[in-house]
Amino acid sequence: MLPMLTLVVLAGCDSDVNEISQAVHQQHLAAAQQFAVAAVGLNDSLSGLCRNDGTASLEAAQQAWTHTMQSWMPFQGRDKGSEAALSLSWQIQFWPDKKNTTGRKLDQLLKQGTQWSVATLAGQSVAVQGLGAAEWFLYDSPQVLQSAKGCLLAVAVAANIQHSGEALASAWQDNPWQAMTPELALGEYLGALNNQLDYSIKKLQRPMGQPGYPRPYQAESWRSGTSLENLRASVAAMEQLYLAGGHGLDSLLRDRGYGATADRLADQFAALLASWPAEPSLTAMLNSREGYRQLLNIFNGLEYIQLMLQDEVAAELGIKVGFNATDGD
């Protein structure tokens, strides 16, 4: 496993880093608000489907779920920033679910006579509280939504996701880097990008397995067949984090005379997204030699970006590189 970025020993312009911190915070706040709005839409759509009031359909609810899932991608795996926001990660998304933990636990809950609500669901496993649970209802077992008991639990799950979305938006109201030294704030920023790269590589690497021996149930969103589409949204979110609206790492590298490095990083992000396969399912790509080759190209592209961050950007900006507890995972 590649080393992770740790502390910054850079002596730079404080005003530049403060501007970056504000831009990155505003980006997170806007994304959290977008996720909260998407979660409301999912709750409304699934609730309408259960009411059978003619205003919702399974397809519309699935689209609302896809939109909410992709709205979550900017936060997935970054592991930096608001502690209150980070504490919500597992209840928003449980992954990997290679043993169908979500499905098995939801089956068990459906056999109970509990009057499910956000409050009662909070005492259950995170595997049944978030987006994976909603995916199970909408894609794996939509027939359950034809029963009152199934709808009660499904609506509780959707309401819980909405509640988590509201909490996420609230948690990002304050800038978690504002009280930090500029050096530490920059280290957090770079660490967030590096951590998300590491997470995204794992999302690809785990289901790929070894040539000829894929592990499709380790793919994210394998029930809906949207794992590769989600991964593209993750890469797009990392590109936006790198750019930070013209006030991010790209701009800092250029300002300090490392335009060539900035160009290579920006070009690599753009090339990855431009050449992305049209197939939304990673599992489908694993079923052919050509599909596997394209996944390898994505893997190599992500690894190239991570190596640039750790070998070139770290050296050019004076960032100390170390190892963390996930090495060798």
Rank of each mutant, 00 (worst) to 15 (best):
S71K: 09
L317S: 01
G150A: 04
V157Q: 07
A325F: 10
D198Q: 06
M208Q: 13
N52F: 01
L302C: 11
N300G: 04
P176G: 05
Q143D: 15
Y242Q: 02
A119F: 07
D53L: 08
Q33D: 08
P211G: 10
P142R: 14
Q26C: 05
W276A: 11
S251T: 15
A11V: 13
T181R: 10
P142V: 06
G132C: 06
L5D: 09
L7P: 01
G191V: 01
P96Q: 02
L145I: 05
A148H: 08
A154T: 03
A278Y: 04
E303A: 12
A325V: 03
W136F: 14
S71D: 05
L253N: 05
L265W: 10
F94S: 04
T120H: 06
P3C: 04
Q27G: 11
L241D: 06
L5K: 09
L249K: 01
A31M: 00
Q26L: 15
L249F: 03
L131V: 09
H28D: 09
L231I: 12
L252D: 02
A314M: 05
S281C: 11
Q129A: 03
G41I: 07
C50G: 04
V37D: 12
A56G: 07
S251N: 13
A30R: 13
A84S: 15
W116T: 07
A39K: 02
E166T: 13
L186I: 02
Y139S: 12
A64T: 07
G191M: 04
R215P: 00
G248E: 06
Q306K: 14
S224K: 08
S251H: 14
L138I: 06
N324R: 10
V17M: 14
Q196W: 02
A185T: 05
Q218L: 09
L42Y: 09
Y242D: 01
K149N: 13
N194M: 03
I319N: 04
L86Y: 01
Q27W: 05
E135W: 10
T102N: 04
